[in-house]
Write a protein that binds this DNA or RNA. Sequence first.
DNA 1: CGCAATAATGTTATAAAATCACATGGGGGT
DNA 2: ACCCCCATGTGATTTTATAACATTATTGCG
Lengths: 172, 172
Amino acid sequence: MTRDAQPRDAENASLLGFRHHDHGACVADALASADARCADEGLRLTPVRRKVLELLLQEHRALGAYAILDLLRDAGFGSQPPVAYRALDFLVENGFVHKVERLNAFVACAHPGQAHSPAFMICRMCDAVAEAQSLPAKGALGAAARAAGFQIERTVVEAEGVCPTCADKADA
Amino acid sequence: MTRDAQPRDAENASLLGFRHHDHGACVADALASADARCADEGLRLTPVRRKVLELLLQEHRALGAYAILDLLRDAGFGSQPPVAYRALDFLVENGFVHKVERLNAFVACAHPGQAHSPAFMICRMCDAVAEAQSLPAKGALGAAARAAGFQIERTVVEAEGVCPTCADKADA
DNA sequence: CGCAATAATGTTATAAAATCACATGGGGGT
DNA sequence: ACCCCCATGTGATTTTATAACATTATTGCG
């Protein structure tokens, strides 16, 4: 794991959109809205699941399953891999969290509620991840899929590059 | 690894474009053109590297690093993971092979020579992989990146769904 | 309520994917 | 010949993910 489990400070906690924002409120809001949606839809946002979501919202960056597992252990939950993976499965399945395939890591959804095809911008220097929307079925890929008779169910769109912060540093 | 290393028969060898084609010639052509390009550019297409490319062209589907490693062993090469990973690194770096992040697997490039951003259609039923072109920087993602000041260097675009063959089977 | 069925969690073990570190060998160029 | 660089071989380890099974908590139903 290159991403460690500890830092929860302001610098790390504000990277997701490549810009700063009011984080405490954003975590609380997201949790509350997750509670609401689960109640609505009869989903069970159990303590482990809620804690994993909270951790990902808190950190506001992509975390590997084992980093999450460390934090779970610290919080008094089970510390074997399936504990983390099962919670993540639930959260991903229900759109609260996305998996970043390129990093084998997980990040809280930045646009919860709305159905969407997420796209990610991943900084290769600092591993910051920003979520954007993508409409992959609209472009060249969608055309190719229609031509081939392929039915798209889900898409992975991830751009690797350099975030503005790291680009500035590199210039200096 | 769920994909095994053995089958090299006609059925498996013709899935990449979700359609049949003359495979023997296509492998030979691709290898010859790789030889030519490497000679041109001073790249060293060594025996292991060439063998890995040949295997991927031959199989014509995505193979995990360890499946490749098994085939390398059968062909008399070293059988420790770095042997396969190093050859794959070279081939990916130089565009002869792509990594399919969703599958942690590798596939020979279907459009060698031309610089391109590959996109993949991955059948969740049979794991067949077809390569298409994508222009991710043109769409919503490109706009988001420009807005955020993010410099895209490389993109991963992968669609998961059902290929025409499997869709037909499911209908029946 | 009491009980069965279902879903979630805990835990042990193991598989699969990827990398590190260091020794060995093969081809150029001088 | 020698050196240097790059590639390969090998053993060990790290990181990521799943299998299998026991236990506990929830839900629905009579």
